[in-house]
Deep mutational scan, measured.
Amino acid sequence: KLETFPLDVLVNTAAEDLPRGVDPSRKENHLSDEDFKAVFGMTRSAFANLPLWKQQNLKKEKGLF
């Protein structure tokens, strides 16, 4: 399991300012399950079932792209 970080560490943070080991294209993977659901309004599995373009739009909207 990946290390999780608080939302404010990941949202609207440039790649070079992210904690070590965080993939800038997969910031959402480093949210706790609770934060993930609070941000996206759905579970990880529901998010994973969305088309890629919709996932990317949601990530942009939430500052996690």
Rank of each mutant, 00 (worst) to 15 (best):
residue 4 T to W: 12
residue 3 E to N: 10
residue 56 Q to G: 07
residue 13 T to W: 10
residue 2 L to T: 11
residue 19 P to N: 03
residue 20 R to F: 15
residue 28 E to S: 02
residue 58 L to I: 09
residue 9 V to C: 11
residue 39 V to M: 07
residue 23 D to S: 05
residue 40 F to Q: 00
residue 32 S to P: 01
residue 38 A to Y: 13
residue 64 L to I: 07
residue 33 D to W: 04
residue 52 L to W: 13
residue 50 L to D: 00
residue 22 V to S: 03
residue 5 F to D: 02
residue 36 F to P: 00
residue 32 S to M: 04
residue 21 G to Q: 08
residue 64 L to E: 02
residue 62 K to Q: 08
residue 48 A to K: 12
residue 14 A to F: 08
residue 41 G to A: 09
residue 37 K to Y: 15
residue 55 Q to D: 00
residue 25 S to D: 14
residue 38 A to Q: 13
residue 16 E to F: 02
residue 50 L to S: 01
residue 21 G to T: 09
residue 60 K to I: 14
residue 17 D to R: 08
residue 64 L to V: 04
residue 14 A to I: 09
residue 15 A to P: 14
residue 16 E to P: 09
residue 26 R to L: 08
residue 26 R to V: 06
residue 39 V to A: 08
residue 23 D to G: 02
residue 4 T to H: 10
residue 26 R to N: 11
residue 37 K to A: 13
residue 2 L to D: 09
residue 61 E to W: 08
residue 5 F to C: 05
residue 51 P to M: 02
residue 33 D to L: 06
residue 65 F to W: 14
residue 54 K to S: 10
residue 5 F to Q: 04
residue 38 A to L: 14
residue 29 N to Y: 11
residue 45 S to H: 14
residue 62 K to C: 08
residue 40 F to P: 00
residue 59 K to A: 04
residue 18 L to E: 04
residue 41 G to M: 09
residue 25 S to W: 11
residue 7 L to N: 03
residue 8 D to Q: 11
residue 13 T to N: 08
residue 54 K to F: 11
residue 61 E to K: 09
residue 4 T to Q: 09
residue 59 K to E: 01
residue 22 V to A: 04
residue 16 E to A: 12
residue 2 L to C: 14
residue 57 N to V: 14
residue 47 F to R: 00
residue 4 T to R: 08
residue 13 T to P: 07
residue 15 A to R: 11
residue 29 N to E: 14
residue 4 T to M: 08
residue 7 L to F: 10
residue 19 P to C: 06
residue 5 F to P: 02
residue 35 D to H: 04
residue 9 V to Q: 10
residue 42 M to L: 06
residue 11 V to P: 02
residue 40 F to L: 07
residue 12 N to D: 09
residue 57 N to S: 14
residue 21 G to S: 09
residue 6 P to S: 07
residue 52 L to C: 15
residue 16 E to N: 10
residue 54 K to N: 09
residue 59 K to S: 03
residue 19 P to Y: 02
residue 5 F to V: 06
residue 1 K to M: 13
residue 65 F to I: 11
residue 52 L to Q: 10
residue 13 T to E: 06
residue 37 K to G: 10
residue 39 V to L: 12
residue 30 H to L: 05
residue 54 K to A: 12
residue 61 E to V: 09
residue 32 S to G: 06
residue 63 G to P: 01
residue 44 R to H: 05
